[in-house]
Design a binder for these strands. Structure first.
Lengths: 232, 232
DNA sequence: CCAAAAGTGTTGAACATACACCCATGG
DNA sequence: CCATGGGTGTATGTTCAACACTTTTGG
């Protein structure tokens, strides 16, 4: 059968907004662009969708290239498609956000792409419309995390309650009451208490917890309420 | 400057999942496809993104072509991009949902495209992956409408509380308590009571309301709670 | 006058918030 | 022994869900 005639074919790219949490700050992984235009400027990690590839496969591939990680939590966000967003040639970009455990990220790989983690409030100016992409992703992260337990994806396998608290405070830029927060968290049934403690951050030490994977999956679509009236 | 070499250019389309409400049932607007492949099969309304056009402009254009309506509530949903989803040539489709006041839709225009409204539970088999697109849009509609007052976009300028109740019941396929629902609705401050009544559906007659546009805009991003623990 | 739909009122339970205190321990 | 951060407990107000009754009017 014949092709669709007289229609414009367009370059399709993916761009990844990669969030990480180091225990203190929420961070964004950026790279220095290796080719023209805008060579050596800060940019999101991205790549073109190949001819035999689904967009989500392209996003996973790109993420793996940069971080060495697979099976990472990713979610499709907005498409950015203004005709002139890329000065070289029209390119439509599908954005994804990725939530990674920053400690699993292998430092040496970053050097290939000259990657760097930036605290969210110190992100440099980015190329093209990548600033808007980041804004949108931050907004979406807040929105989603207010209702679903996705922030656990940012934590290592073993984590403490004070760590989660800090994470939520970082994401929403608010102070939370640790007592009420702890109660809510425990009541979800998502946590399994471990026997050992993290003694790095305090003298008393804080118990480690693991995520109850079964409950996590089951309750993922249920609406939670860790943050009341979040701004997003 | 040179173009990006050796990359695949791909057809980019938009497909619109158009919801309407006739006072009794939630409906979907479909067309009979006018060209091969899959000519004369039921399909979503769609079109290719033109070379000078943003994707959202393409979606608005396509919607206007079919319904004659502009300034319609639209929202970008998922991108469907499997390499073989269109058998003729690879096409990536960006989906949008549109919420229209069914009464503003002019019947005669539909004939050009052989369009028809289908109650959501009687939607025929659609071409390609359009079934999945509809499923996704239904899910997203439920999700969004549980938290934000978007369903007002489906109602005419003047509407009654029993009408909104029916609408929510249709969307979530549940029975709601009219007393609790009415109280929640009134407490939002979104409604302005009119002096006249709709006498079509009951002997007593139900007061008309209008949407308070200012409050609507202001409260749009606030989380509401018309439906508790919605399935989505 | 009565059926059918609109509209108002009450109450107990669940949940959220605000706030105060004890615990463990490294230095 | 004390400063520091971890952890538990309680009282109060708000919100939600369950439920019963009155109002209006066309036929």
């Amino acid at each position: 059968m014949t092709k669709y005639v007289k229609q414009t074919r367009i370059l399709v790219a993916v761009d990844c907004i990669i969030f990480g949490f180091d225990g203190y700050n929420l961070k964004l992984l950026l790279i220095k662009r290796g080719f023209e235009p805008e060579k050596d400027k800060w940019s999101l990690m991205g790549g073109f969708v190949q001819s035999d590839e689904k967009p989500e496969e392209a996003a996973s591939r790109v993420l793996k290239q940069l971080t060495g990680l697979k099976d990472v939590y990713m979610e499709q966000l907005l498409v950015f498609g203004e005709p002139n967003r890329d000065p070289i040639e029209r390119t439509i970009s599908i954005t994804y956000f990725a939530l990674v455990d920053i400690k699993k990220y292998e430092k040496q790989l970053s050097d290939d792409y000259r990657a760097e983690w930036f605290p969210l409030n110190r992100v440099p100016k980015l190329i093209f419309d990548h600033d808007r992409m980041v804004q949108n992703a931050k907004r979406k992260l807040r929105y989603k995390a207010a209702l679903h337990p996705i922030l656990f994806e940012l934590l290592p396998e073993k984590f403490t309650i004070p760590q989660i608290l800090t994470l939520y405070e970082q994401v929403y830029d608010v102070q939370l009451d640790k007592r009420n927060f702890t109660r809510k968290l425990r009541s979800t049934g998502l946590l399994i208490k471990q026997m050992d403690k993290d003694k790095e951050n305090s003298k008393k030490g804080a118990f480690y917890y693991k995520l109850d994977k079964a409950t996590y999956k089951e309750k993922f679509t249920k609406f939670l309420n860790f943050v009341s009236n979040p701004e997003y």
